[in-house]
């Protein structure tokens, strides 16, 4: 199981590298779709069908939005002159990589082995959840019942984002 997930994640890494280095922006967006749909397969292997359903819908909508933006433009990424700040940002990313590698090694040693995690917080959510929430799906029970106020906050964020998109697209820019 772990090997299968590692292989799919490797494919996602290849897709991500191609998306970052592609010359045509349309192929970059489609290579970003490789990463998203690979994530759907990973969710299915990790026994998370709710996440897989939501992710496949959201990924399709994201791709449609991105393709609509890219098709409206000239589509190619220009590499006109060598970037004087390029070396600075390469050095910066190498530095950040080192720092994050350090913290990752520390934190991954404190994690449980893959597949051997214990239910620390979710135990009370699973015990008698069907009687408490009336939902056979435990994820739905957590989202809409035990953590209902978080879901309300999420709805607020969604409304704010939709209002923001509408406002940004409707205003007339200064000429």
């Amino acid at each position: 199981m772990e090997i299968a997930i590692a292989i799919i994640t490797g494919l996602m890494i290849i897709g991500a590298l191609y998306a970052i280095h592609a010359k045509d922006l349309l192929s970059a967006v489609i290579a970003c779709g490789i990463v998203g749909y690979g994530l759907v397969i990973c969710f299915l292997l990790l026994k998370a069908p709710d996440l897989a359903i939501v992710q496949i819908v959201v990924e399709t909508i994201t791709l449609i939005i991105m393709v609509a933006v890219v098709l409206d433009s000239s589509r190619e990424e220009k590499f006109s002159k060598p970037d004087p700040q390029g070396y600075v940002s390469m050095t910066l990313s190498a530095l950040i990589l080192g720092v994050m590698l350090y913290f990752f090694i520390i934190s991954v040693s404190s994690l449980d082995e893959f597949g051997k995690s214990t239910l620390r917080m979710a135990g009370p959510y699973i015990e008698g959840a069907t009687e408490k929430t009336g939902s056979a799906n435990l994820v739905t029970g957590v989202v809409f019942d035990f953590r209902g106020y978080d879901t309300l906050g999420e709805a607020t964020v969604l409304v704010t984002a939709v209002l923001g998109v509408l406002t940004i697209l409707r205003i007339k820019g200064k000429k």
């Binding site: 709710d50 996440l51 992710q55 435990l138 994820v139 969604l158």
Partner: peptide, 22 residues
């Protein structure tokens, strides 16, 4: 499997869509 991280990610996926659209 643990339902709590799945519930968290379910929220985060939808918010990710909103931020990407913005």
């Amino acid at each position: 499997v643990d339902p709590l991280p799945q519930a968290l990610v379910l929220t985060a996926i939808v918010i990710g869509l909103a931020t990407t659209a913005m």
